[in-house]
Computed example of a mutant assay.
Amino acid sequence: MIEDFWEATRRRLLVVQRCLACGHRQHYPRLLCTACGGTELEYASVSGLGVVDSFTIVHRAPAPGFEPPYTVARVRLAEGPILLTHLVGGTDWACDLPVRVAWRPLPDGRHLPVFRPARD
């Protein structure tokens, strides 16, 4: 199930689950639709556009490999689902700021979806 999400990131394609019964879109991947309880779910691509719902700037690394400061945020996609993600490419963050998806390469060929200001 989650493998399909990560496979899509290899092509820099952002996908969320869509319920075939009611059309509800959700992220993170689950076995059931959170709106109707349906079990027939597929992955659907989304625009990658959204707004910052909430954010925090981390100044102390929780473990080696994290270079502070960095910004962690909830981004509400235009299609509805919320992603917990990193914000990159800016410093004047604010709630309701329009953002768009960007991609951070991972060593195994996948990409991590991160978000940058939409005006960039």
Results as ranks from 00 to 15, higher is better:
L49C: 10
V75C: 10
L31I: 04
P113S: 02
G23V: 12
A94V: 01
A102D: 07
D53Q: 11
C36N: 05
A94C: 04
A118E: 13
R76T: 10
G38H: 02
T91A: 13
G89L: 11
M1D: 04
P113G: 06
G65E: 06
R11Q: 14
Y43V: 02
L41N: 01
V46G: 02
V52C: 02
G80D: 12
P69Q: 15
L41P: 03
L31G: 09
R74V: 06
P64K: 09
V46L: 07
E42W: 04
D108Y: 03
Q26F: 13
E3K: 01
G23S: 14
R74C: 06
A63R: 12
T39V: 11
P69M: 15
E40T: 07
G50Y: 08
G80R: 12
H86W: 07
L106R: 04
I82K: 08
G38I: 08
R100A: 08
S47V: 06
P98D: 06
L106I: 02
I2C: 03
A78C: 13
P29K: 04
H27I: 00
R10Q: 12
A73H: 01
S45P: 00
F5C: 03
T71S: 15
V88H: 03
H111W: 02
L13C: 01
R100Q: 09
R11N: 14
D120W: 11
V88C: 02
V88T: 02
F55D: 11
L31K: 07
G89D: 12
L77D: 00
V72A: 14
P68S: 15
D92W: 00
S47Q: 06
C22L: 10
D53S: 11
D96E: 12
V15N: 12
V88L: 04
T85Y: 09
F66K: 11
S47E: 08
T34C: 06
P81F: 05
H24Y: 10
L14W: 00
D108M: 01
D96P: 03
C95P: 04
I57H: 14
G37I: 09
S45N: 00
V46K: 06
G38E: 08
R30A: 12
A94N: 00
V101T: 06
L112C: 08
T56P: 05
R104M: 05
V99S: 08
E42F: 03
S54Q: 14
L20N: 10
H27K: 00
A94M: 01
T71I: 14
R119V: 13
D120L: 13
L83K: 03
R116H: 10
T34R: 10
D4G: 14
V101L: 03
A61N: 11
D108S: 04
R25G: 03
R25E: 11
P62Y: 15
G80C: 14
V15P: 11
V114H: 03
H86L: 12
R104Y: 00
G90C: 12
